[in-house]
Design a protein around this nucleic acid. Structure first.
Lengths: 144, 144
DNA sequence: TATAATTAAATTGTTTTCAATTTAAATGAT
DNA sequence: ATCATTTAAATTGAAAACAATTTAATTATA
């Protein structure tokens, strides 16, 4: 009865990986209602809060790089949710700004968090603990 | 100072999604040493334990479907890590079996979990709590 | 038995993600 | 001022993941 360090059920990373994908999948029906993918949804969250961000800082917020964000933002621009324009102060930077249409979407989105939370059957304390541990892990070696 | 339910920092799903990707990225240098991707690595874990599984049950173990697994397993077959053959009892099923070469890889892999754990800076209690909460969330609505 | 329904993989097409490179702009050093 | 370095996005190419469909085999039903 050895403790096998390579057994799937003895890993911490695996439930993290699987849980993340399953939870994102659970969002799909709600996000379909407002025409967003999960990645677009979290990008909109940043924009609902900040109104304008450059790609770099959006990427830092979402832990995504320009390889992911550039096509995502072009599609969101085509959907009329954001505008993209170069910074005048620094032409290297692309400023992404929320449009009126993007602002209006927030009204339709605001019921989603509560409906999702209801899916998860964690109580408030458990959710808080999970949140804290995930952010602690996320901040590990932020330098990478 | 309203509590904005659509603020990124008020979400539980986001650190889950970001943390999962960051942790998988942390595996990369270790997995590169043995020539596996993360998905191949967790598939190997199931095979190191079970020796033979069909695609369906492998998918249930990993929360992945044949659309992901078929190309993954074909590549792993080309790498000589697994063999693929139809079940004689039920020709619909494809049996995936570990090869000698696949078995040997376990020796090289066995140092990985401890080295990864050292990266995460969670103590044993925190890791245990996180593990439990992730599996609780993962099992929510297993019917999906 | 014949037909319908179900199941398991594979396939197709799309999206996401990431690594690595490229391009262009800004900054720093000589 | 010139050249080197750094930085920000974009691009390219590959892998991963998923939805939806297809194919073939099995099981259930009429």
């Amino acid at each position: 009865m050895e403790h096998d360090v390579l057994k799937l059920e003895n890993q911490l990373c695996f439930p993290l990986y699987a849980c993340s994908r399953e939870v994102v999948k659970k969002y799909k029906p709600y996000l379909d209602e407002i025409g967003l993918t999960y990645t677009q949804y979290i990008a909109m969250m940043v924009l609902w809060e900040k109104k304008t961000v450059n790609v770099k800082s959006l990427g830092e917020s979402l832990y995504l790089d320009s390889g992911t964000l550039t096509p995502l933002l072009k599609k969101m621009e085509a959907m009329g949710l954001v505008a993209r324009e170069r910074s005048e102060k620094d032409e290297r930077q692309l400023l992404v700004s929320i449009t009126n249409k993007g602002e209006l979407l927030k009204n339709q989105a605001k019921t989603i968090p509560a409906r999702m939370a209801a899916c998860l059957n964690l109580n408030a304390e458990e959710a808080g603990t999970l949140y804290t541990l995930l952010y602690k892990t996320l901040r590990t070696g932020e330098s990478s």
